[in-house]
Nucleic acid binder design. Structure first.
Lengths: 137, 137
DNA sequence: TCTAGGATTTGGACTCTGTCTAACTCCCGG
DNA sequence: CCGGGAGTTAGACAGAGTCCAAATCCTAGA
């Protein structure tokens, strides 16, 4: 997908079993066109900046729907700082504590070894690795 | 420290540059005597169960103070599910999504390799690795 | 022992995210 | 054109955590 358009988004949504409504397309477009980590609040601001008028409830409904369907990923860096990440490929995160800046760490080079076997009847949902950094004093 | 007593706690606090008041001792004792991950709310319940009467504000103040001073560690598994962990040694966490159960993963065997060099003027505050699991369907 | 002052605690109001609900709108198949 | 299910909405609500000004608790010095 070279260029992100609203038409692309509709396809993408359908491919993930999501009925592409106006609001959903706008929200998907907001996330995917910028390849950034956005908070629910930021999504709402962006989507409503043009004219679309999407309610808070819909933003939350939609983000949770996208999560369920595996379209986006949730990054929890702080209670009350949850980001939604359009990049679902394997990668980790670097969190700059003071500024709140969140950047990706490509997972290709990172190896996590020696994790113990899971208890019987359990399966991994996801592995979240967050490196917290700050500016040296 | 073989046995956790309130006297021990006072020492521990002083060793971390914290003025050991009644409330702080009770809160430290709650966390360290059970070696468990507790939420702020659980701490409050435990501390007030005997008689101590400690206010919500104090519980939060104190937990944050302990955090700053490196006495305890914060584990954020979910927005609105923050745990405080008296174990500050190197270890990771296993989070059972459905039950909310949080258990330690000893870090001795776990190796995380290939993390990129930090940007200049940055230092690592901490590395949080959370493995999310669920019961297989 | 008494006292002043800084440190700590407190209740309660407040904020911030996110959820819930019941009504409303949209859109599609017949 | 109509009926009905899916989706959206405003606004009330909930829970976690913060803030603030007042009250309380030490403790060092007189």
């Amino acid at each position: 997908m070279l260029q992100y358009s609203r038409d692309n988004m509709a396809e993408l949504l359908r491919a993930h079993d999501i009925n592409p409504t106006h609001q959903r397309i706008e929200i998907a477009y907001a996330l995917f066109s910028r390849q950034e980590h956005l908070s629910a609040d930021q999504v709402m601001t962006i989507v409503n900046d043009r004219h679309a008028e999407t309610s808070k409830a819909t933003v939350y409904n939609t983000l949770n729907l996208f999560l369920e369907k595996g379209l986006i990923r949730e990054v929890i860096v702080d209670p009350s700082k949850v980001f939604y990440d359009p990049n679902t490929g394997p990668h980790h995160h670097l969190y700059e504590v003071d500024s709140g800046q969140l950047t990706d760490i490509d997972a290709d080079d990172v190896r996590i070894e020696g994790l113990p076997a899971l208890p019987k009847g359990m399966e991994t949902v996801g592995i979240d690795l967050i490196v917290r950094v700050k500016r040296t004093a």
